Simulated assay, not measured.
Amino acid sequence: MSRDSRERTLTSKLTEALTSSLNLSEVFANAEDLLFRLMPADYMALCVSRPGLRGDYDWWVTKMPAPFLACYSERAEHDFVRSAVVRKPNEVLRDSEMVTHRKVLERSQWYAYCRELGMPLEHVMSVLLDVKGGVHAGLTFYRARRRPFSRRDQARLQALTLVLTQTVRNCRMYGEVAARGQMLGAFFQHQATRCIVRVNPFMEEMRTPLTTALLMKWFHPSELGPLGLPSVLVERLALLAARGGTGAFGLDTWERKGEARDLAGQDLRVTFTHLPMQSGQELWALEFQELPRAIPVPEAWRQLLTPREVETVSYVLQGWDNQLIAEHFGRALATVKKHMQNIFDKLGVDGRTALICRASLMFRGTLS
């Protein structure tokens, strides 16, 4: 069997393992050996953030020293891996793309710390999975010997990033609920879910009353197919099912902008989730969320910023640039730039994009 054939077989088995359960511990146990075979490394770690607790993570690890986990939150600010991947979510990075030069890596506090723990960090490959809903996850591979991760290694992990993201999201969204009883019944005890579950995938199994209300609000009767679902959503579901539950980033979500008077300023987002098989049936869940178009200033930020800075942030979150803000308030551009730098410093972000991303994650984490 050729190397390409072996890789395709491993990737297929790994995808199956990653969708085998809604319990992340079980999923990771099933996938661990396959991940190491596909991306040979000495250490591996998966961490998943806890919504609302900055720097606090749940860890699923392989061969890593216990002090690494116990002290991570205290040392996180020195982790150049974390600092690099948060700037480029869903993009796999090698250490050569995280630091400007090999000597920078070797002189870093993180490099020295890992060596103190008996876990030499010579080469790293990592990706930040943007799970949404105020949650992110990091998957990192470490090599203790001087054998750099190749572009082929990077491409293999990049190809798996979508299914990894979906796995973490599904386990976080539904794992705790499903553990309390029969999976389908448990979903609908969870009032925030507001989803439709379909089988194979074109027979509707059940829906919440809230879902029916949202369909009536956002879709004209002429847009609904014979099963009572909008044809556009059925078409998207068919495309995802044909791909085995995976696809390009963004394919598992669909959005509509509110144009009618009663929907102005809102968007409807539908998230498609491929669930583990039940009694031989392929299951999907469709979750509906109404989102305000402008991201509000997080309440926690209002306590850190001056009233003028809060006002400035509110316009940044609406997509205004510095020049437009300066013209609107009749201020000098230099003054607005100074306000922005003060805001970045107070909030601990390194720029406008990071500020908007963090506000968006914080806001989505508060949605019911």
Rank of each mutant, 00 (worst) to 15 (best):
T193L: 10
V48H: 06
K88D: 07
G245L: 13
V316A: 10
G138F: 09
Y174R: 00
G351V: 15
Q154C: 14
Y57V: 05
V197P: 00
H220A: 12
T312K: 01
A159Q: 09
F68Q: 02
H190Y: 13
L157H: 02
L18Y: 03
A84D: 01
A76L: 08
D153Y: 06
D350E: 12
R152V: 13
V349N: 02
M216G: 02
T271H: 04
L24N: 03
N200E: 14
S150K: 02
F188C: 00
Q109W: 14
Y113K: 03
G365W: 08
E77V: 09
S12G: 12
L53W: 08
A70F: 10
P40D: 15
A192M: 01
V127E: 03
P65H: 06
L35F: 13
A186I: 04
T193G: 00
V234M: 08
Q158F: 04
S368E: 09
R364N: 14
H136A: 09
C357Y: 12
H220G: 01
F329E: 06
M340F: 09
F272K: 06
R256T: 13
L240E: 08
C47Y: 04
V104P: 00
S231F: 05
V86Q: 05
P296H: 12
W301P: 00
P298A: 13
F141I: 13
L162W: 08
E235K: 11
G319E: 10
K13A: 14
V199Q: 08
C71I: 07
T100E: 11
L22A: 03
G265S: 11
H339Y: 15
M173G: 01
V86Y: 03
E77L: 09
M216K: 08
Y72D: 05
A300V: 15
R115Q: 11
V313H: 01
L18E: 05
G245F: 03
R147Q: 08
A41L: 02
H136F: 15
C47K: 10
S150M: 05
R87C: 04
L214E: 06
T9K: 07
L24K: 01
L286Y: 01
G175K: 09
R364F: 14
Q318I: 04
C47F: 07
V232H: 00
S2K: 06
E97K: 06
R115M: 11
E77F: 10
D58A: 14
F68E: 02
P67H: 06
V124K: 01
E287D: 06
Q154A: 08
T15M: 11
R364L: 14
T15W: 00
R50Q: 14
A17Y: 01
P226Q: 11
K132F: 09
A144E: 12
Q281C: 05
W284S: 02
R261I: 13
L139T: 09
P276A: 09
M173D: 07
E235G: 03
D130K: 10
M216D: 07
R172C: 11
K257I: 15
G133H: 05
L263H: 12
L162E: 15
V135Q: 06
C195R: 03
W254M: 10
T62G: 05
G348F: 07
G225T: 12
T15K: 08
P201Y: 13
L121A: 13
L214S: 07
E74V: 00
W320C: 10
A326R: 00
A84E: 03
S96E: 14
